[in-house]
Amino acid sequence: MSTSASFFSDFQITDLLFLGEAAGRTLGISAVSITIGTVLGCVFGWALQESKWLAQVTIGTILDVFRSVPLIIQLILFYNFFPIIGWKMGPFAAGAFVLSIYTAALVANVVRGGIDAVGDPMRRAARSLGMSYWHDLRYVVWPIGLRAVFPSWVGVALSVIKDSALVSVLGYLELLRASQILITRTQEPFIILACAGAFYFALSYPLSKYSKKLEEGWAS
């Protein structure tokens, strides 16, 4: 019989379930942010590419700020700003909000590159064949541009999944925060961090390899 009380319990099989749930939340917030961010980013990127200066000085500057300030500062800043203007937002909503704009800022650049890759001569040719502006955008720019920048979009998506770990500072129970809670309880940082790292790796590695393969396939 042990004489001292034990405050720490070992790593158990149910803890894997706890980590798995948290991993699901990591995926959830990433999926929401990537979806919203990509839609916004497409609109912003298109506006930046097509406008002379109005979009550049407005959207361009804002997105530039979001790319130049650490994500963790953005998260803390917005999480503390929403209550000031009277919005009640939980960690998930605030985190998804910031991550979405952050994604949009990165995607906007990718989209600009995609439109650039199509080139003016091709677009003028499309217009002179009688296509409207929107036809040109839908049937010429979209398919060609998408091919050019899809691998970089995958790169952005992967970096957002990894950056979603920072939402833990708002108290959102995603994978990294869950692993920290377990570390506090079990005092076995190595195994638990290895599990969390393995999950991120298992998610990110195949996707990055896949996009690299696509890139090579399209380049040749």
Partner: peptide
């Protein structure tokens, strides 16, 4: 290279911070 590129930077920091504590 693959671990550095495919895991969050925060995870890498935690690893050096807490993970190495195991040793």
């Amino acid at each position: 290279v693959e671990i550095a590129r495919n895991t969050p930077a925060l995870f890498q920091l935690f690893f050096f911070g807490f993970g190495l504590g195991a040793f």
